[in-house]
Amino acid sequence: METDATYRGTVYPWQCDHVGHMNIMWYVGKFDEANWNMFARLGLTPSYLRETGRGMAGVQQNISYKRELFAGDIVEVKSRLLEIRDKSIRFLHEMRNAETGEISATCEITAVHLDRQAHKSMPFAPEIRNTALKHLSPNEAVPA
Rank of each mutant, 00 (worst) to 15 (best):
H93F: 02
E99V: 09
N23M: 07
M56H: 12
L44C: 00
S79K: 10
R67C: 05
I109Q: 12
D32Y: 02
T106C: 14
P13L: 13
Q117D: 12
G53Q: 05
Q60H: 07
I24E: 10
S79E: 13
R90C: 04
K66N: 07
F91P: 01
E102C: 11
W14D: 15
C107A: 04
D73N: 14
V19D: 11
V77S: 01
L42H: 07
T100C: 09
H18V: 05
T106Y: 10
E51S: 02
S79P: 01
I89Y: 01
L44Q: 00
H18M: 08
F91T: 02
I74Q: 04
K66L: 04
A34T: 06
I89C: 09
E33N: 12
D115A: 07
L69G: 00
E51H: 11
M122A: 13
M38A: 09
P123S: 10
N62A: 07
L82Q: 13
Q15Y: 02
V28M: 04
M22K: 15
L92D: 03
H119K: 10
M122P: 08
N62W: 07
H119S: 14
S121L: 14
N35I: 00
H119Y: 02
I24N: 12
M38P: 00
N62C: 11
L92Y: 10
F31P: 03
Y27T: 07
I84M: 10
S104K: 00
E102P: 05
R67M: 08
V112C: 08
V19T: 06
F39T: 06
F31E: 02
W26C: 11
S64F: 09
G29C: 10
Q61L: 01
G101Y: 11
M25H: 12
L49V: 10
T100D: 14
W36F: 13
Q60F: 05
G55P: 01
H21W: 00
E94H: 09
F31T: 08
E51D: 13
Q61D: 12
K87M: 10
G55C: 08
A118M: 13
L69F: 13
E108T: 03
L81D: 03
N23L: 06
A34L: 03
V77K: 00
N62I: 08
V28E: 10
R41L: 14
M56D: 08
K87F: 10
Q117W: 11
S79Q: 11
G53Y: 12
T52N: 00
S121R: 07
V28D: 00
